[in-house]
Design a protein around this nucleic acid. Sequence first.
DNA 1: CTCTCCAGTCGAAGCGCTTCGACTGTCTGG
DNA 2: CCAGACAGTCGAAGCGCTTCGACTGGAGAG
Lengths: 336, 336
Amino acid sequence: MVTLAEVAQHAGVSASTVSYVLSGKRSISATTRQRVERSIRELGYHPNAGARALASNRSNIIALMVPLRTDMYVPVMMEIAIAVATTARTHGYDVLLLTGEEGPDAVRRVAGSGLADGMILMDVELDDERLPLLRESAQPAVLIGLPADTTGLTCVDLDFKATGALCVKHLAGLGHRDVAVIGEAPAVYERHTGFAERTLDGLRSAARETGLRLLHRPCEGGYDATAVTVARILDERPDTTGFVVQNEAAVEPLLALLRQQGRAVPEDVSVVAVCPEQVAVQASVRLTSVSLPAQEMGRHAVEQLVAKLDGRGGDEVVLLPPALTVRASSGPAPVR
Amino acid sequence: MVTLAEVAQHAGVSASTVSYVLSGKRSISATTRQRVERSIRELGYHPNAGARALASNRSNIIALMVPLRTDMYVPVMMEIAIAVATTARTHGYDVLLLTGEEGPDAVRRVAGSGLADGMILMDVELDDERLPLLRESAQPAVLIGLPADTTGLTCVDLDFKATGALCVKHLAGLGHRDVAVIGEAPAVYERHTGFAERTLDGLRSAARETGLRLLHRPCEGGYDATAVTVARILDERPDTTGFVVQNEAAVEPLLALLRQQGRAVPEDVSVVAVCPEQVAVQASVRLTSVSLPAQEMGRHAVEQLVAKLDGRGGDEVVLLPPALTVRASSGPAPVR
DNA sequence: CTCTCCAGTCGAAGCGCTTCGACTGTCTGG
DNA sequence: CCAGACAGTCGAAGCGCTTCGACTGGAGAG
């Protein structure tokens, strides 16, 4: 391993000078800088992360806590995680992957050991058990998701309330009067995950506003569960002409069922999904959808966190505005 | 931040004693140990990661390089990543998430800075550009996937050749004579990703052995691309009664197409998939499949790496044996 | 022409931990 | 009863880096 001292000797300067060349915290003459940089290159020097962390009290690592749940749509998590990792790199940070397994203890461990400079928490629940710890440890953190009490916290999320409203207004605008919502798995609601409830909130208030009749049913996803849910919905509200789906695992089953029942999309029934763009585009019918901006959320989270670590910016709640893209699955309500 | 020295003072012992209590590298009397442990608890002490890394030359971090490709099935990657993270924790390691973005440089950076003690590379290509670097840096590493030249490397992977053979033999045993393979996206083959070619290899040699006629076609996945691929296959080989699918994104489209054409599964056509268990079970027809043991691969990779880091075990190639589960999508070939 | 200031450099003091060698007593075997 | 072994503890020397204060020489101000 090449050390700073060896670089210094090779370049004929002192160790501190090399350090200042690296950090840019003091001015260095052009000639010295070049000499040092050349030595660094020739010797293939890489600063030792541990030593740096010890001396500077900064690890240049961001911890990312990913939930372990099986009822969340995995590709979205992955997309966020990847976006976090690549954005972090552009700011000189690496990402430590923590799984939910360890639970709140992970917060303590990371904060206590100085392993990471800050953390990003995904899939935050309304009343998340990690939050008290976070507040008391004064660990710089950004949440992806929105807890009930956001005081002293920085959060990034899609504006799910506006998302729900957008879906209903789109369908209302097309003349639909009876709309069913195929929601997330029951467990998601029981956990009080903010986003599901907020979407529902938006759906409901927009329905009230537009005089639409709304029926919401949670759904596990998969063919069998979706078939049961859809059958119940159509049984209860045979006049349903619009579906809002907020469960990626129910999208394709729903389309298959409708096809099977001879209901044409979008002529007889309109479908609007809340899902990643890729799912909407690759479905058997190109879906009108509000996309889940996974990448953007990851990027924002990192940028908020880096701002905090740099002493810029404070607590803030960023709600990304939803965008509805009209594709082939929605159209005017059928005339009776 | 509480330091070792403070714990030592609080417990009335020297710093080194506390260190030995923590590491267990020297014997400590029961009473002293208890006193120290009590102080640690009372003060809420957490060893500082940087200092530890500097002094011991060990970071207790494993780097995981995840590819950034869009043509790989994401949930599998995620499952592996999660399995790696949780298994690593049980061995006292944390996981650093590196995306493919940085490319081979990441290997240099991590090896050079001592950020991680070892690394796990996912989605290794037959002739991966990271391998020379790995060899020369003598960085302890484990690959998930199998490159062309495995000398000096430790690899973990599913035995894809046996997987291919298993699929063909299953269908042959059921009396099928004409089998089509819907493969991964063309890009996957162009990249010379080992697993796709090895599966094909197994399929072909088993076909030769059993006298089966085999037609292989790469396929992007998604409805449109799959429709084109299937149409071409049935055009070229109208007598096809068996399908092997090795592309998660083509599974559901294929089933939908067959249904649409009035071909019943498994009465008219049998389908065998190579995919994660969840996909097989949640498909519209419960699929006979060889499962991708993502968790097991992640776990194995970590355990191999930890063994290396502990100076146990050497270079080794572990090929996990495939297991075929018969479900509702395969049955006897129809009699003509 | 002196005084101040600043860019540019260096030396040294840690950061919090691990680990080696050394020391002290206690126990065992001969 | 003593030599040797060994469990148990301590002090001190780093690990490789950052950063503070101090020093130097030359430029600009008065």
